[in-house]
Design a protein around this nucleic acid. Structure first.
Lengths: 238, 238
DNA sequence: GGCAGTCATTGATCCAGATCAACGAGTATA
DNA sequence: TATACTCGTTGATCTGGATCAATGACTGCC
């Protein structure tokens, strides 16, 4: 799992494309797929903190060869809601025109491949396997977003943080037989912006979970979870 | 638009299937498509208030030939969050195994067609047009869910209700040159469960919007919006 | 058309988390 | 290794929406 956070530079731009083909078009001959995708896919290396730019006028897909990102929605008054985090190997669906303005920002140095959604779909029409992978991927994102909506609409601060930590443990944690070590690539502010809470509330809830013996922290990013099952109980799942 | 809320009975179960084919597989020969789908698709008529049952062990799709539904997530302590409303002609993606338990409930009498997701996808692999339609549909649902997450995470009660009413106006409203008449098929409780608020707060915010001249109500379900643009301004969009 | 039951509204009070404020701990730069 | 600066923690106070409570208005059923 530790490679999910790899931030070592991919050697070249063509290699980013090749990794995407390997991950999402395993049946395709690499040269053929790369040829078609090469015209619409823009590979890029993005420094942590910068925005991964996509055409804002329509939907886009971004493949993440390495690194970690946050997908941010902006509402009025500068309020920000992080709607999803993504890690190496994942494909992100970035909304274009919508009620809110969406941005994909790099949490650490990233290698990314941006593609306009309609052009990617035009290519995918020729490859049912790929189309189905895209669909399965999108269904997964939809269901994660719905689970998130439950938290934002109906859970208290402690449940939200427990939920977040369990989710991160599963996605980027180093499993240690029921326990787990996580190296969070995002700040407390990011956690707050993701859970609809303030930075102060996040800090206090970390304190509570620490007192409950469910969390140990070291420095700003190291989090150790000695009892994943216990955290799950707190998370308000049914 | 008024047919989006049609609740007159569809004549037969085969007709529900035929409507799905017409809406989502326009290129397919109806008899061929119906033959394949016939083995996996379960047509049903469901009375308002009842649950549209799907196999809970895996994801499902539900096509709504007529009526209106709410997709409910249950968290612990009986807390409920409505993650989406759906109307006639729409295809709903219902999560199976997840952190929360999901149910699709009929708001009014519905004609529905339930299909296991993996079996539907197996059929769709033979038809790129259909697969692409499913994907576009799911991307749309994902982006609506993200916009909803922004509201749940970062907006106050008034913005949430304004947002909700604008959304309903676009989906089931009868447009009247900048104004709009809506016949809400859901209760105040449902509106609250969708916006992460209580029934009392919904009621108070309806009062506020009424005083602002942005909403007129008649009975429990009739809502008139004289100034959609004004509501949009309140909704906290960027 | 009267009655029952559910749903919506309104008012009073409470509380979880926001906001405001100050301080401490990491991290980066010279 | 000192310095500056951002990030995280902790405390005091405030507030929007929840909760508790009571009343009023539809809707459906005899």
């Amino acid at each position: 799992m530790s490679n999910r956070l790899k931030s070592a530079p991919a050697v070249s731009r063509t290699q980013i494309l090749a990794e995407f083909v390997r991950d999402y078009l395993p049946g395709a001959r690499a040269d053929v797929a790369a040829g078609e995708l090469g015209h619409i896919a823009l590979p890029m290396r993005v420094a942590g903190g910068r925005t991964i730019t996509t055409d804002r006028t329509s939907n886009a897909f971004v493949y993440l060869a390495s690194g970690a990102t946050k997908l941010i929605a902006k509402a009025s008054n500068g309020r920000e809601q992080i709607v999803a985090f993504h890690f190496a190997g994942e494909l992100v669906s970035v909304p274009g025109k919508s009620c809110h303005s969406y941005n994909l920002a790099a949490l650490v140095d990233c290698d990314a491949l941006t593609m306009p959604a309609d052009e990617l779909l035009a290519i995918a029409r020729g490859d049912p396997d790929f189309l189905e992978t895209l669909l399965q991927n999108t269904i997964g994102a939809l269901h994660r977003c719905r689970d998130k909506a439950v938290g934002l609409g109906r859970k208290n601060a402690q449940e939200r943080l427990a939920d977040f930590l369990v989710g991160m443990a599963m996605r980027i944690g180093q499993d240690q037989e029921g326990a787990c070590l996580i190296n969070l690539p995002m700040s407390r502010r990011d956690v707050g912006d993701s859970l609809g809470l303030t930075i102060e509330t996040i800090s206090r809830q970390f304190g509570e979970l620490r007192e409950l013996g469910l969390v140990k922290t070291a420095g700003r990013s190291q989090v150790f979870l000695p009892d994943i099952a216990g955290l799950r109980n707190l998370a308000g799942y049914i």
